[in-house]
């Protein structure tokens, strides 16, 4: 029982980690609190649903949904935030603008697609499962963990070992100095928007698969959870976001299994409050360190 709960928790946690990764990237590099991030999560799930409904296999629906969600993120970032960045508006301004935009987008999505919960077509995933000793792990769960691991490794090596990744980290620290090095910071920002939107969209598809429930407002609760995770992990800290995502997933599963599923959603925030009392920089943050 305990082992199975932990496995289920790690599966959900790896999707959380992926979601948090995109959020911490956006926050760390772009330096704005962008609440539309949860919208990309919902967009990703719906796009995969549409693609699957049209007969696309998951191997096509998932990447397609992620890429399109990334493009939506680039467009929304450009429309909402370009002006604010140019005038170096305070963070509260970006918070309010993106909050307003998000409420509008969720409403528009509900009006367009209906607000009822939708499900992926039966047979999208193989129903099989593997036995690991006494535990079982389904094909869907393997897909979730595999995708999350692959995308996280991809992002980590992009940030650590490529010229673009180097420029992203430089931009996270000091936008003026990056420009002086010859970095076209606007172009790098577009790439970061794309990547984070795509990660958020992919996470939406995976969570949609895990719970088989897709609704326009699914991104709203997830955004709050995402912020809790990246604060736990230390803002802008990629490894921290991954670890905190897994941790929250496991704690949720254990809470649902041993206490009550009523408290499941609260456990991440409880952990957040307890952590901030003891370590204001988050579990994995360095004191005084800012971003990325």
């Amino acid at each position: 029982m305990l082992g199975q709960q932990i496995i289920n928790g790690l599966v959900a946690g790896s999707a959380y980690a992926l979601f948090a990764l995109g959020l911490t990237l956006m926050f760390g590099v772009l330096g704005v609190v962008n609440l539309t991030y949860g919208f990309y999560f919902a967009v990703g799930a719906y796009l995969a649903l549409l693609a699957a409904g049209a007969g696309a296999p998951i191997a096509l629906a998932l990447p397609l949904a992620a890429i399109l969600a990334g493009l939506v993120a680039v467009v929304l970032d450009f429309l909402l935030l370009t002006r604010l960045r140019r005038t170096r508006a305070p963070e509260l301004a970006s918070l309010m603008v993106t909050l307003g935009a998000t409420l509008f987008l969720y409403s528009a999505m509900s009006a367009l697609l209906g607000s009822e919960i939708r499900r992926f077509p039966a047979g999208l995933l193989d129903n099989g499962a593997f036995a690991l000793g006494a535990y079982r792990i389904s094909v869907g769960q393997i897909l979730i963990v595999g995708t999350a691991v692959l995308l996280s490794l991809g992002l980590v090596s992009l940030m650590g070992a490529t010229r673009t990744g180097l420029a992203m980290r430089a931009l996270a620290e000091n936008s003026d100095a990056s420009e002086l090095m010859g970095v076209d910071t606007q172009a790098i920002m577009r790439r970061v928007s794309f990547l984070s939107g795509a990660l958020g969209g992919a996470a939406g598809v995976l969570i949609g698969l895990e719970y088989n429930a897709i609704a326009p407002y699914m991104g709203e609760a997830m955004t709050l959870k995402g912020f809790a995770i990246i604060i736990l992990g230390g803002l802008g800290n990629i490894g921290g976001a991954l670890a905190a995502g897994l941790l929250v997933g496991v704690l949720e599963a254990l809470t649902a299994g041993y206490v009550s599923s009523v408290y499941k959603e609260a456990v991440g925030f409880l952990l957040l409050v307890l952590t901030l009392w003891v370590r204001p920089q988050g579990l994995f943050g360095r004191p005084g360190a800012r971003r990325a």
């Binding site: 000091n174 002086l180 971003r291």
Partner: peptide, 27 residues
Amino acid sequence: PAHRIARAGIAHAPEGRQIFGEMTVSE
């Protein structure tokens, strides 16, 4: 824009140094 001027061949070591403190010397 500054990155175009850098491309033209002007390098600026700015006031206050503005190095990337979170990155290594090599980076």
